[in-house]
Design a protein around this nucleic acid. Structure first.
Lengths: 138, 138
DNA sequence: TCTTGAACCTCTAGTCACTGGAGATCGTAT
DNA sequence: ATACGATCTCCAGTGACTAGAGGTTCAAGA
């Protein structure tokens, strides 16, 4: 049995975040001491590690809740879990695609100005003001 | 002179968002009709287009406010503007890097499970539960 | 046993960039 | 004159935390 601070140290999840996860229903409410302080066991640590890992991979709280639900039913098909994972993968890929387009445009804009002139003639500002100066949609 | 609805249509920025930009100081408060409705001119349209374009490129409201500030001083060096743009570029590149790592990990996790088994043996769930199954840090 | 001080508790509010709704008023076409 | 869509302000909600105030508890040392 260990305190919330100890759990925080072991998982690298901040204390208010742990309480937030509890409030959102991702973490079961743990036992309490007589003085009302939370005391966790190995199961709590495992659960929080799962959540942390999933959050690091960008899963939403909602998706994580669904994954935890599935974990609790070892006899159910895991198709749902793989669906959630592949949805997350598509999401990540879409974000990468969009960011690459932005990167290209930002490189183009930045190249146009060496930073030595006056704002009057700044290509950065001109590009932002006039969308026609862009090469592609974004 | 045109209404907020017309401005919204022309810029593809939603009406509440336009009001939000005004409240945040990015847009000057426009003239009003006798009945208190906003009426915009070409300058308002131009300004909002600038903001929209910068937001599409991922600049924060704060960064945009700084860029607008600079726009208003044509005689100042544009080094600051290029700095803001290159900071934004680094930011975008950092995000891409991180997302690529996540993508790799998600592909690996997804590959391990065909979705036909039971959750009990699901590699997706097992991977999330046990960080040691990951190939790299993320 | 007592005291200290770090750790913990709850509750509220703030972050960013919007988005949506309620309820009231305005503008314009017929 | 009337109808009705557009607009007004104000307030609350989103996601995933984060921070602070003000009070209580735990554990170690004297």
């Amino acid at each position: 049995m260990f305190s919330i601070g100890e759990l925080s140290r072991r998982t690298n999840v901040k204390i208010p975040t742990i309480r937030y996860y509890e409030e959102s229903g991702l973490l079961d409410a743990p036992e309490r001491t007589e003085g009302n302080q939370r005391r966790y066991d190995a199961a709590g640590l495992e659960r929080l590690s799962f959540i942390k890992h999933a959050r690091d991979l960008g899963f939403s709280i909602e998706a994580i809740a669904a994954l935890i639900e599935l974990q609790g039913h070892p006899d159910r098909s895991c198709a749902e879990a793989t669906d959630i994972a592949s949805a997350q993968l598509s999401d990540v890929r879409a974000k990468i695609k969009r960011l690459r387009a932005l990167e290209k445009e930002l490189v183009r804009i930045s190249k146009g100005c060496d930073g030595n002139g006056m704002t009057e003639d700044c290509y950065v500002l001109a590009s932002l003001a006039d969308h026609r100066l862009c090469e592609r949609e974004h």
